[in-house]
Computed example of a mutant assay.
Amino acid sequence: MSTPLIFDHRAVRLHRDRAARRQAEVLPILQAATDHLIDRLDDMARPFATALDIGGRGLVCRALAQRGISTVALDISAPQAALSDAPALCSDLETLPFAAHSFDLVTACLSLHWVNDLPGLFAQIRHILRPDGLFLASLPILPTLGPLRKALETAELAVSDGVSPRVSPLPTQQSCAHLMQRAGFALPVVDSDVLDLRYRTLGALMADLRAAGETNALALRPRGMTPRMLFPAATAMLEDTDEGSFAMPLHMAVLSGWAPAPTQPKPLAPGQFQHNLGEYLADGA
Rank of each mutant, 00 (worst) to 15 (best):
L195S: 13
R198S: 15
Y199T: 07
R200N: 11
R200D: 13
T201Q: 03
A204V: 03
L205F: 02
D208F: 04
D208V: 05
A211D: 05
G213E: 12
G213H: 08
E214F: 05
E214N: 05
T215F: 06
T215P: 03
N216Q: 08
A217T: 14
L218S: 10
A219M: 13
A219N: 10
L220H: 15
P222G: 05
P222Y: 01
P222Q: 03
R223W: 09
G224T: 01
G224V: 00
T226V: 15
T226I: 15
T226H: 03
T226M: 15
R228G: 11
R228Q: 14
L230N: 03
P232M: 08
P232T: 11
P232W: 04
A233L: 02
T235I: 09
M237C: 11
M237I: 15
E239P: 01
E239L: 09
D240H: 14
T241N: 04
T241Q: 07
D242W: 05
D242Q: 14
E243A: 15
E243Q: 15
S245K: 09
S245E: 12
F246S: 09
F246V: 10
P249Q: 02
L250F: 09
M252C: 02
A253T: 03
A253F: 06
L255N: 00
S256L: 10
G257W: 00
W258D: 00
W258A: 03
A259Q: 08
A259V: 04
P260R: 00
A261E: 04
A261R: 02
A261H: 13
P262V: 00
T263V: 02
P265S: 02
K266D: 02
L268N: 01
